[in-house]
Simulated scan of single mutants.
Amino acid sequence: MGNRTALISYSARILGSRDAAEDIVQEAYIRFGLGNFPQQTARQGLACLYRIVRNLSLDIVKRRKIEQRTQNNDPPFWIVPRSTETPEQTTMFCDEVRIAQQVLASLPRDIQIAVEMHRHGGCTLEVVAEHLGISVATAHRHVKTAMVKIAMALDRKNA
């Protein structure tokens, strides 16, 4: 038990928690005491204790990482129940898409390309600007202009 503090410090560096390290060291002493170790020198016994503490600590770290991975991930899309839309909702959505398409078709070709690349293609404004040979600010203005006109047309429809 003379090396308990050093073992706790060793485990705490791995785990980041002194409380958890104390539990690990206690478990290590239990395992060391129950183990069928042949006659060992004090130095070999201490090395064995350090190895047990290290392995137990790393097991805890691995378990934490696995738990974090499973907690942070959203469930796969195919597990989540899909809401069923009513025919009215589907019709309203189709009407809104039609209005957005009409507004977009009424805009100049550069603005149409900018919106399609940015909103549908996932391109950055820098890529859009480079493709169209315009500044990034102008590309942003094109996308913003189109989105405002679409929003205004949808508001008029819903009013």
Rank of each mutant, 00 (worst) to 15 (best):
N3K: 11
R4M: 10
T5L: 04
T5Y: 10
S11Q: 01
A12P: 03
R13G: 08
I14V: 02
G16I: 08
S17H: 14
R18C: 10
D19Q: 10
E22G: 14
E22V: 01
D23Y: 00
A28V: 09
I30P: 04
R31T: 07
F32W: 12
N36C: 13
N36Q: 09
A42S: 12
A42H: 14
Q44N: 01
G45D: 05
G45K: 00
L46G: 02
I52W: 06
R54F: 15
N55L: 10
S57Q: 09
S57W: 01
L58T: 07
D59P: 00
D59V: 04
K62F: 00
R64C: 00
K65T: 12
Q68F: 08
Q68D: 13
Q71A: 14
Q71P: 00
N72E: 15
N73W: 03
F77S: 14
W78Y: 10
V80N: 12
V80T: 12
P81S: 01
P81A: 04
E85N: 03
E85S: 07
P87L: 13
P87F: 13
P87D: 14
E88V: 08
T90V: 12
T91P: 00
E96G: 14
R98A: 15
I99L: 13
Q101F: 07
Q101M: 09
Q101C: 04
L104I: 06
S106M: 09
S106V: 14
L107K: 11
R109H: 15
D110L: 04
D110P: 15
I113A: 11
A114E: 09
A114D: 07
E116P: 06
E116M: 11
H118E: 01
R119N: 10
G121L: 09
G122Q: 05
T124C: 06
T124I: 06
L125H: 14
E126G: 14
V127Y: 08
E130Q: 06
H131L: 02
H131K: 11
H131P: 01
G133N: 06
G133M: 07
I134S: 06
V136A: 07
A137T: 11
A137W: 13
A137F: 03
T138G: 06
T138R: 13
T138I: 02
A139E: 07
H140T: 14
H140A: 11
R141C: 10
V143E: 11
V143S: 00
V148S: 12
K149Y: 01
K149I: 00
K149A: 04
I150E: 05
M152I: 09
A153I: 02
D155G: 07
D155Q: 13
K157Y: 13
